[in-house]
Design a protein around this nucleic acid. Structure first.
Lengths: 219, 219
DNA sequence: GCTGAGACTGACTAAGTGTTCAGTCAGTCG
DNA sequence: CGACTGACTGAACACTTAGTCAGTCTCAGC
């Protein structure tokens, strides 16, 4: 909306689209509103991206490239429990994370590729962390990693409830690391001392003791 | 759709609305499509519920009453790790769970009440399970319960990815309990043996426990 | 100068949206 | 019987939607 914006129109449009798609969903966002927020005409949006679906794909591609570029930063940061922690430290990460949170649930087939990439990365980190002696070995390492990624993604998708219930804002731009405490502290406690007493395990696993068909799964 | 439907119009409309809202979202569902699926005119929908928002509230109320009615069943079932497990055993629970999964993420303030209820219930269950010797005590029991509920809700919201990655379908009507194995087995393993080795705990909790250590880090 | 390409726009279209309204029909009550 | 109620409908309403189109502007290259 500012008179002097050095960035090109297409770039401003994608930025506005990510913000509005994340805020109100795809169906709840019109090309008009995207154009208005970007300070351009609606026709220009179609001119650049062909259609609303084309704009959506461009947004996905943009988010994917940003997250991919951050993989190196994640690797350098040592063992990581939360795959989105490094994304949070990006500048202006709030709209991007909000878009990602929404895409994870209503994206359907579109987000499949991105999620698979998160899982693959997490698998690498877990293997490294296990070799470094940070995490314990598992009877089903593949499934365990998937469950952990699902929980992280799910918690991101539930960010509004997390903020209300714990006072932890996953989308905050300038949140200091210790502000995540009310979420991370019980998580770390669960991941060290566990949740259940020893006896409860055998009692509950009986129900799921099917032939070891799943353990065949491997990459 | 069927010529002879004993149920009243309002009931059929709510059922159709829950199905379509859960499938395509609120913005992606028109009153026309709801009326068509219910085998009724669009005007009747407005006649019964006043507006689209009124229909939405009626759906929320319906879901809330069903889940509330199942609280007793949950209590009788003993210690429960997943607050949605009993919902899954309902007949025709698939549309209801899908609606719930979508409402959890895009419901915003609307779903606040329902989520708070889930948390309050989970708090009761955790206290009972702790007294029964099933789960270990926690330094932050309140936050721990919230985190567990958030993970459960988040996993439900991620049901499409869970199905693709683990072959576990949270929304399946006729799924036998052991079909949840690939999800529940690593979860139980995490909750008994934990995830991290003993040494890793102190190393990572430093960041969130003592404020002085952080100021030292920055200096 | 001129040409052509591409960013960019206002005006338009056809379809779809939630909502309004007048009115039909089957019952119920006095 | 007539008055009345409530479920139910078709047709219209005003509005928004994604997408089209003709045409303007800027600017590099000849």
């Amino acid at each position: 909306m500012s008179d002097t914006d050095s960035r090109g129109g297409a770039e401003r449009i994608i930025e506005a689209a990510i913000d509005l798609f994340g805020r109100h969903g795809v169906h709840g966002t019109s090309l008009r509103s995207v154009a208005q927020q970007a300070g351009v005409s609606q026709a220009l949006v179609v001119h650049h991206f062909g259609s609303k679906d084309g704009l959506l794909r461009a947004c996905d591609h943009h988010v994917a490239s940003v997250t991919r570029a951050n993989k190196e930063r994640t690797v350098a940061g040592g063992p990581q429990l939360d795959p989105f922690q490094t994304l949070r430290q990006l500048e202006k990460s709030q709209p991007l994370l909000r878009y990602l949170a929404r895409a994870l649930t209503e994206g359907g087939e579109r987000t499949r590729e991105l999620v698979d990439e998160f899982v693959a990365d997490a698998h690498d980190y877990m293997r490294l962390a296990e070799e470094a002696g940070f995490v314990k070995p598992s009877a089903t390492p593949h499934e365990r990693t998937i469950v952990l990624v699902i929980w992280s993604m799910g918690a991101l998708a539930m960010h509004s409830h997390v903020k209300r219930l714990l006072g932890v804002d996953f989308l905050a731009d300038d949140a200091p690391p210790e502000s995540l405490g009310p979420y991370l502290r019980p998580m770390l406690e669960l991941f060290t001392q566990g949740l259940m007493q020893e006896g409860a395990f055998d009692q509950m696993t009986e129900m799921f003791e099917v032939p070891e068909s799943i353990s065949e799964r491997e990459a």
